[in-house]
């Protein structure tokens, strides 16, 4: 009885332990390079969460990087031209991205399946062309510089220029918030409907579900999260410009989601994003020219052994441990 209760609460305990670990981690390990990788991994977490949300509504977007760009440019413009404070610029980046996604979504989400994918691919390319050539707003390749924010909370003043630590805590907070949101949605009635729209669109339509409505909802929500990530990223790099948002990033989001595990709304993308950003950066530093080959082979091997992603380990690992103990059990226990 007690044991069963404990077992049921185990994931929650593990999750809390993990969150506490992420919070105290940079205080113990004072490696600034690692910190910078983790911050970028956090941005990629938000990006992958957005991608997964769209994917779970049955659509496969190849242009998610465009929403990163919209959020990034909106955040940068709000901060540098309108002089909005940090938090409001983040929100503004997310909202403008969501508005663009809503307006585009009600038009392009009518296209099913791969037509939608290619349309988003084309939109992503168009977004980069616009960013490069709309000089009066985006300043072309010059881009827009964003000053590091100085946040005042009561007596406390945090200058983001001197330390990157605040960025870390903010991105951890943002990831937790986004994860909670998508987790709640996944557990709610909305989540069930969205899944049915994805898995059986025709049946859902016969059951009276308005497909477009749910697709647009998920597309807009995902774009909001991606836009916030874009605005945050621009603050972190203190600059925004077209080279930041190449179309290849959208496929990287797909790789992250599949490696982490597509069938979990939250943990899969987060795990995948952290693993891919960490090892991707490490490989770039240490392998140089060999990186593409090793990266590609590793992805294929991972998918080969764990087609359902790393989240599968939570079932496989206990089974593996159990099998270890069983083998040991055959040998009579030595007296202590």
């Amino acid at each position: 009885m007690d044991k069963a209760k404990l077992k049921a609460k185990l994931p929650l305990i593990l999750l809390l332990a993990f969150i506490i670990f992420t919070i105290i981690f940079p205080l113990i390990v004072k490696d600034r390079f690692l910190l910078s990788i983790l911050i970028e991994a956090g941005v990629m977490c938000l990006f992958a969460l957005g991608f997964a949300a769209v994917f779970r509504s049955g659509q496969f977007s190849l242009g998610q990087a465009a929403f990163l760009a919209v959020g990034g440019y909106a955040g940068a413009l709000l901060a540098s031209k309108a002089g909005l404070p940090f938090w409001l610029s983040l929100l503004g980046g997310g909202l403008s991205s969501a508005i663009v996604a809503f307006l585009l979504g009600i038009v392009i989400l009518r296209m099913g399946g791969l037509y939608f994918s290619i349309a988003t691919l084309a939109l992503g390319e168009i977004a980069i062309i616009i960013a490069k050539n709309w000089d009066s707003v985006t300043s072309g390749m010059t881009g827009i510089a964003v000053d590091a924010p100085i946040v005042k909370i009561g007596e406390l003043t945090i200058n983001f220029a001197t330390t990157k630590l605040p960025y870390y805590y903010i991105i951890v907070l943002l990831v937790i918030m986004a994860a909670l949101m998508f987790w709640r949605i996944d557990r709610s009635r909305l989540g069930t409907v969205v899944r049915s729209v994805a898995v059986a669109p025709v049946m859902s339509e016969h059951a009276g579900i308005h497909l477009m409505k749910y697709r647009v909802i998920m597309f807009t929500l995902a774009a909001f999260v991606t836009g916030v990530a874009g605005a945050f990223y621009v603050y972190y790099l203190s600059w925004v410009g077209p080279p930041l948002f190449s179309g290849a990033q959208s496929t990287v989001a797909l790789i992250m989601c599949v490696i982490g595990g597509l069938w979990s709304a939250v943990s899969g993308p987060i795990i995948g994003a952290i693993i891919v950003s960490y090892f991707g950066t490490m490989m770039q530093i240490h392998l140089e020219g060999l990186r593409p080959l090793v990266f590609g082979v590793l992805v294929i091997v991972l998918i080969w052994f764990m087609p359902n992603g790393l989240v599968e380990l939570q079932y496989r690992f206990p089974a593996w441990v159990k099998s270890l103990f069983k083998k040991k059990g055959k040998v009579p226990d030595a007296p202590a």
């Binding site: 496929t251 797909l254 593409p292 080959l293 990266f295 082979v297 992805v299 294929i300």
Partner: peptide, 9 residues
């Protein structure tokens, strides 16, 4: 995703 990984390979 395997085909995407094959690009790098």
């Amino acid at each position: 995703v395997v085909t995407i990984a094959l690009i790098s390979v």
